[in-house]
C-alpha cells in the first residue's frame, strides 16, 4: 500500500463515523447528534482496543496549549513580595510554551508545613526557576494560582 493510501486527511467539521459503543471520540474530535466529527485539520488515527476503537485526529501543526488546573508547570519568578511572588509560566509538563502565561504563588502555597514562618524574600528571588502545580485561574488578577512543588 502506498504512503498516500495509508494516511486519511480530514478538515474541521468533517463527519468521521457514527458514535456508538464501538467508536469512541478521541483527541481532535467532537461528538454531535450521534456522530463523531473532526475539529482539526490533519491525519485520522484509529486506535484499536479489545472491543472499542478510538478515533483521533492529529493536527498538521502543533496546537497552542493553555495551562489548566492540575497541570505541572515550570515557571520563572519575576517579582517577589511579602505576601506572594509573581511568576512567568514557561512550560506545561515537558512542552515549552510559545508565549508565557502569568502565575501567582501565594505565601501559604509555598510549603505544606510551618506556613506561618515562611519568608518570601528568603524563599525566592527574581530569576528562580520553580516547579509548580496550577490550582485555578483568578479572573480579577488575570493570572493562574500555582502551588510550589518541592523537588
Amino acid at each position: 500500500m502506498s504512503k498516500d493510501k495509508d494516511i486519511i486527511v480530514c478538515v474541521p467539521g468533517q463527519r468521521l463515523c457514527v458514535s456508538d459503543k464501538f467508536n469512541i471520540a478521541g483527541p481532535g474530535t467532537y461528538e454531535q447528534q450521534g456522530y463523531i466529527y473532526s475539529k482539526l485539520a490533519g491525519v485520522i488515527k484509529l486506535i484499536q482496543k479489545e472491543n472499542t476503537r478510538t478515533i483521533e485526529v492529529h493536527g498538521i501543526t502543533e496546537q497552542s496549549i493553555v495551562p489548566a488546573p492540575g497541570d505541572i508547570v515550570t515557571a520563572m519568578v519575576t517579582i517577589v513580595n511579602q505576601r506572594f511572588c509573581k511568576c512567568s509560566i514557561k512550560c506545561i509538563g515537558d512542552i515549552v510554551l510559545t508565549r508565557p502565561y502569568r502565575g501567582i504563588l501565594r505565601k501559604e502555597d509555598v510549603r505544606a508545613i510551618d506556613k506561618d514562618n515562611i519568608q518570601m524574600y528568603k524563599s525566592f528571588r527574581p530569576g528562580d526557576i520553580i516547579l509548580a502545580r496550577v490550582v485555578s485561574f483568578i479572573l480579577s488578577e488575570k493570572c493562574y494560582v500555582i502551588i510550589h512543588i518541592k523537588v
Binding site: 478538515v11 474541521p12 467539521g13 475539529k39 485539520a41 498538521i60 501543526t61 502543533e62
Partner: peptide, 11 residues
Amino acid sequence: LINAGIPMKFT
C-alpha cells in the same frame, strides 16, 4: 485558523 490548529466546528 486551520493552520493555527484552533479547534473548529466546521470550515
